[in-house]
Amino acid sequence: MKSFRMALLGTALLAAAPALAQPAPAAGGPPARGERGPGAIFNQIDRDRDGKVTWDEAWVYVQQRFTTADRDHDGGLTQEELAAAFPRRGQAGAQTPADRGQGAGRTQMLGMMFRGLDANRDGKVTLEEIRPAAEARFRGFDANGDGAVARDELPRRPRHHRHGHGQGQQPAPAQGGEAPAARPPG
C-alpha cells in the first residue's frame, strides 16, 4: 500500500480514500523534489506543517481530491471519473495498488473499489459515501489513537531484495556440505 494515500478515497482502497489521496497540486503545495509515496502525500495534507495530520486536515484533502475527480461537478463520482483519478503506472502520481495493475486487472481492482464505496448502488459515489471509509482509513493510520497521524505512523514500504532465495530454490549448503531439508508445501 503505498499511500497515506489510500487517506485518506477509500480502501480498503478502501479505496476511495486512496484514490482521493493521490497527490493534488493545489493541496498544500507540491511535494519536495523527488519525494513520492506516503511521505509526499503526508506533506500535502499537513497544511499547518506541524508534523501531524488531523482528521480535519485529512477531510479537507479528501474533499479537494473529490472535487478534482468530479469532472462534471454533479456531486458524485462515476466509475469512469474514479478511474481517471488513478493515473496508470508511469504517469505522475501513480501510487496505489490499482495503479500497479495492468489492463483487465486494473479495471477489476477499480471496479471493486467503486462497488465498495457506492453504498446505495446508484452508480455514483458521493462524499457522504466516502466519508465512513476515509474515517476508518484515518483511524487505521492513527496507531496511538491520539486523533492525529504522525509521520512515524505511516506504513513503511517493504524492502525489495535483489539477492536472496527465489521460490523453489534451496539455500546454499551448510558448512557440513548438506543442504537443509526442504519444508513440505503448506
Rank of each mutant, 00 (worst) to 15 (best):
E135V: 10
L110A: 11
I130T: 10
D70A: 03
G111Q: 13
Q79I: 13
I130L: 15
R139W: 04
R88C: 02
G90F: 08
N120L: 05
K124V: 14
R131I: 01
T67A: 15
Q64G: 14
D146I: 04
Q79C: 05
G101W: 11
E135Q: 14
E128Q: 15
R65Q: 10
G105C: 05
D122F: 10
T78Y: 03
G76S: 05
A136K: 06
G90C: 07
G116N: 13
R65L: 05
R121S: 09
Q79K: 14
F141H: 02
R137V: 01
R106L: 06
R139S: 10
F66I: 00
D70W: 01
T68F: 08
Q64M: 14
D70N: 15
Q95M: 15
D72M: 07
R137D: 03
Q64F: 05
G75S: 10
A85S: 14
Q91I: 03
A134I: 00
F141E: 01
Q79W: 05
Q91R: 11
R106T: 09
M113Q: 12
Q95D: 14
G75T: 06
N120V: 06
D99N: 15
G93A: 07
T126L: 02
G75V: 03
T78R: 02
V62P: 01
A85R: 01
R151Y: 07
L82I: 07
G145V: 11
D70L: 02
R88P: 05
G76D: 01
G111K: 13
M109S: 09
G111F: 05
Q79R: 15
T96A: 15
G103S: 07
A133S: 13
N144K: 08
A104H: 13
E153S: 05
L127F: 08
